[in-house]
Amino acid sequence: MIRGTTLGGVQDRHGFRAMNGTRWRRRYRLTRTLAMLMVPLGLAACVQVQPYLAKELPSATKPLRVLLMPPDVAAVELATAGVPLPRADWTALAQAGLVDAVADTLRKHGAEMIRYRRATGIVPYAEKHLEAIALHETVLQTILTYRYGAAQQRAALPTKQSGLDWTLGESVAPIRADYAADYALFLVYRQATSTVERALFAAISFVLFGFIHPTSQSVGFASLIDLNTGAVIWTNLLQGQSLDVNRPDGIRNRCERLLSGLPL
């Protein structure tokens, strides 16, 4: 019903360049509409999570203090050729949704959320914490390769065939000392949404050739670090595609999925 008329009508009568502040919402609706076209054609929305837990945490005798590190969030719009165009508005929306979801989740677990104080507007981390941050990213790449990678990649490290056995060691001591927190929570979130043109191209190529081009994708990674030992306690990878990728409730839903299974 909306398919041809709405898309054609909006583009023909007003054009995207004539749109004002509500332009992105319209564009989102159009993108969603185009994406919805694909559902009956076999491309169902799907978001999956894959958590790993190193060990169950002992029961806490007092509320745990969890330090939320500056979430690393970016949202882009994919042009027809697949070129990513940064979208500050979607990034801000995702960032806010992520922080809200963390606050709610920790509250439910009876834990206290502490926000990391950004060093400057540009550089998020204090100099003395950079060693731990850089090591975390390296450990993260290792975990993504050998725990979340394809079977061949997982098999390439037989010394770590199962479980979650990595650490940041003593490098986390300066963070623990500065914030008196029990755990640090790192979050990375990326989402890519197709422009209307790309979504249209995807629909056409599916109809004509059977090729499926995902129109909206999200990927997120969360890790919980024990600040007393440096051990990586828990990780979760979220990836998939959904139609509500840039709506606050959609972002919140995915953030909650990303934090599902947080072992606090």
Binding site: L144, T145, A150
Partner: peptide, 10 residues
């Protein structure tokens, strides 16, 4: 990861 799936070094 987002665009190509897990394609990392082995």
């Amino acid at each position: 990861l987002l665009s190509l799936g897990a394609a990392m070094l082995t």
